[in-house]
Design a protein around this nucleic acid. Structure first.
Length: 772
DNA sequence: CCGATT
DNA sequence: AACGGCTAATCGG
């Protein structure tokens, strides 16, 4: 099995030469290179009227870039039509002449003219990148740089490196450390960077991984290489690292030896309040990673203080990055195979794009014409079209015991399959009066499957298969790498299945269709409402429900046998009324739960696990001190049913805050800057904090997450907000943190338990238990 | 105090 | 550069 790592093309004799980089299984050679010369760039043009006449018109225009014209049959909204396939000499010619062709009289529109050449080739040649890839076969190296600022320049002082062959290095050019084996002192910065480049090549690395290398490590190194006269070639010989624009961001492309930045991968794969390397490491391995105050690095490094700590921190970054990569990469290998695109692109792709590539591949295989991406006007129109979304039940506020949670497995994907929801199946003429009619009145064909339902069926079937294999392999105690790959596959398939609905409602989607998206949501509301109704008709008390789930509480004490009985009876009753593609499942049984508002609740399971949704604990725009206190109160209430003790906890926190004992890191609030600062009509604390920081020389741009503290000086809250780095310990406004952070978070829980606001106010001011 | 903004 | 629903804090008239 050959594993395609990367693909690119270069121009030779004015023609494209495609270069495919394959893994060398034995690693006797670095990579196997295959070259393809005979793939020609092309696009389509749809005739207005006769195809033959249109062909003549194009011919007559005598575009020098065109080498061949042919009339071919393609499918458009289930109908076969004749279109012109326009073959050009060089990939750049597509963009050059598509508009000129579109301007011709007999041209309706051009199609598939915005698909990049190499990606087009991979689809047409039916290649499967990363086929058979796993962590064992691939050589994976991570690196990270530590830097200091010197006269407006960012200078790397350490490059740390770790690979899955066991090599670990921290190169620098200042300090020798014979007792730290991984440390190596180079003569100067140039030698250090060269050492790194050499090592990657000598180790015959297949994948380079970084944490935010796209936006930091690579740009910095590239700059330094330019200044120091170093040939920054890490991959294929003679090809320098390219910074590719990807929307707003950059991607650092190492041709032939793909660079995967795992920061965007982690952002997509995990739901965390923050995504620093330390946060992700903690979330994944439940272990703290060595961290230091980067601000002191320069001083320490120059003075020769804490050098061991700095070097250990540097290597810990590389180690951690590699460890995280080994966890997340398998899903990327699988996604790369599933959507038939190189891992470089896939790892930086949103789910909407991933689904789109999959659809494009399927469309090509079925001779279906790919819809165009919307232009600016079309996009603006789509943005205006809105539709009603999911149904959320107002919860029965307060504490409930014995909670049964049910949910629909893949609700939206199964609705799409069950009702054949696809842009091409709307208002078909083959199903007169026999359509699937959505609650919003849209008619979908019952006879011929649409592309998206078919894709989803494939995805769900593959997932069932992967999960079965996985179960079998785990039971047999099979190979760990294989188990990981199967798990990664089912994970990747789940991601894809769940994004199809959002994709149809995504304004930039090729297969966008508002009627489809709104019908899916409408059917979703109908199914969950009907299920809730059935539960109530059975005499159950539905305490909450959201989109695809419902929770019912049974106050009486229940044995395990009874729990099982209730669950099975209910599932059987509901499921026999549902279409075959749809199924209600038992998500779990919970001992107790507290419900605050829609989307905000906490549950404890019989095995003592706490599940919290929507409450402050889960949000980064609340200070750690408020979140931690809320969690402690929740635990005390749910497990011990002891509000007195909860009050004691709060009292202690308030005292600590007033005594100035709480460290700044527990008081930080994180809020993202979403647009240029001048565009804010309403300048919240984060905006004001950012503005002040800019005046003192800090850089802030849209997308940055501002970390700020509310200090003592100033009148409004915004006045008092300062970015971390401009605040001293102890300089915080204790009353703000008490009244605007800790107490609201805690009171939300207590109020839900029925304590009146008046009682709580007294509780807030005096911190006594009088009210209870 | 309340709607708008985030 | 997936969707909409929803809560809550803060600003600012």
């Amino acid at each position: 099995m050959e594993t395609l790592l990367d693909a690119t093309y270069r121009t030779e004799d004015e023609k494209a030469l495609i270069q495919l980089f394959y893994l060398s299984d034995t690693h006797l050679e670095d990579k196997k290179l295959k070259e393809v010369r005979n793939f020609e760039p092309y696009f389509y043009a749809v005739p207005r009227g006769s195809a033959q006449e249109f062909l003549e018109e194009i011919k007559a225009a005598k575009f020098p870039q065109i080498t061949r014209l042919e009339i071919v049959k393609r499918i458009e909204l289930r109908r076969e039509i004749e279109v012109i396939r326009i073959v050009v000499k060089h990939p750049s010619h597509v963009a050059e002449i598509r508009e000129r062709v579109a301007e011709l009289k007999k041209c309706e529109e051009t199609r598939e003219d915005d698909i990049r050449f190499v990606q087009r080739y991979i689809i047409d040649a039916d290649l499967t990148p990363m086929n058979g890839a796993d962590n064992k076969k691939l050589r994976i190296a991570s690196f990270d740089i530590e830097t200091i600022n010197e006269r407006d320049k960012i200078i790397p002082i350490i490059i740390s490196y770790a690979d899955n062959l066991g090599l670990r290095k921290a190169w620098n050019y200042k300090h020798e450390r014979h007792d730290l084996k991984f440390v190596e002192k180079c003569p100067d910065e140039k030698a250090m960077i060269n050492k790194f480049i050499e090592t990657v090549k000598n180790q015959k690395i297949d994948l380079i991984v970084t944490y935010n290398g796209d936006n930091y490590d690579f740009p910095v190194l590239k700059d330094r290489c330019k200044e120091l006269g170093i040939d920054f070639t890490l991959g294929a010989e003679g090809i320098e690292i390219k910074m590719e624009r990807r929307g707003m961001d950059m991607g650092a492309r190492v041709i032939g030896r793909p660079h995967i930045d795992i920061y965007p991968v982690c952002r997509r794969m995990f739901s965390l309040p923050r995504y620093t390397l330390e946060d992700v490491h903690l979330a994944l391995f439940d272990e703290e990673k060595l961290d230091i105050e980067v601000e002191h690095m320069h001083k320490w490094w120059d003075a020769g203080e804490n050098v061991d700590t700095i070097l250990s921190y540097a290597i810990a970054d590389a180690d951690s990055c590699l460890a995280i990569a080994l966890e997340v990469l398998p899903t990327e290998y699988e996604l790369s195979q599933l959507i038939h695109q190189p891992i470089f692109e896939v790892s930086r792709m949103g789910t909407g794009n991933a689904i789109e590539w999959l659809l494009m591949k399927m469309a090509h295989d079925k001779n279906i014409l790919v819809p165009q991406k919307p232009g600016d006007t079309e996009y603006a129109t789509r943005r205006m079209e809105s539709y009603e979304g999911a149904y959320v039940v107002e919860p029965e506020k307060g504490i409930h015991d014995n909670i049964f949670v049910f949910d629909f497995r893949s609700l939206y994907p199964s609705i799409i399959i069950a009702h054949n929801i696809d842009p091409s199946t709307i208002n078909c003429d083959c199903c007169e009066k026999e359509w699937h009619i959505s609650p919003t009145g849209i008619k979908f064909c019952k006879k011929k499957k649409g592309l998206i339902p078919e894709l989803l069926e494939d995805i769900l079937n593959s997932r069932v298969k992967a999960k079965l294999e996985l179960k079998k392999l785990v039971a047999e105690g099979g190979d760990k790498t294989k188990i990981k790959m199967l798990d990664a596959r089912q994970q990747a398939l789940k991601i894809l299945a769940n994004s199809a609905y959002g994709y149809m409602g995504f304004s930039r989607a090729r297969w966008y269709n508002n009627d489809c998206a709104s019908s899916v949501a409408a059917w979703g509301r109908e199914y969950i409402k009907n299920t809730i109704k059935s539960a109530q008709d059975e005499g159950f008390r539905v305490v909450y429900g959201d989109t695809d789930s419902l929770m019912m509480a049974i106050p009486e004490k229940l044995t395990d046998v009874q729990i099982n009985q209730i669950k099975n009876d209910f599932l059987t009753k509901i499921n026999k009324k549902l279409p075959p593609a749809m199924q209600l499942e038992f998500e779990g049984f919970y001992t107790r739960g507290v419900f605050v508002t829609k989307k905000r609740y906490a549950l404890i399971s019989p095995d003592k696990k706490l599940t919290v949704k929507g409450l402050e604990i889960r949000r980064r725009d609340w200070a750690e001190i408020a979140k931690r206190t809320q969690e402690q109160v929740l635990n005390t209430i749910l497990w011990e049913k002891n509000p007195q003790k909860a009050a004691e906890i709060v009292k202690e926190v308030v005292n600590d805050l007033r005594a100035g004992k709480v460290p700044l890191k527990d008081l930080l609030i994180y809020t993202q800057i979403t647009k240029p600062l001048g565009e804010y009509e309403n300048t919240g604390p984060h905006v004001e904090a950012a503005k002040k920081a800019i005046k003192r020389g800090k850089m802030v741009k849209p997308g940055d997450v501002i970390q700020y503290v509310i200090t003592k000086k100033g009148s409004s809250i915004s006045d008092k907000a300062e970015m971390i780095g401009f605040v001293n310990e102890n300089d915080y406004d204790a009353e703000y943190y008490i009244n605007n952070q800790v107490l609201p978070a805690v009171m939300r829980i207590l109020e839900a338990l029925g304590y009146q606001e008046e009682e709580l106010k007294g509780f807030g001011r005096q911190m006594t238990l009088g009210g209870f």
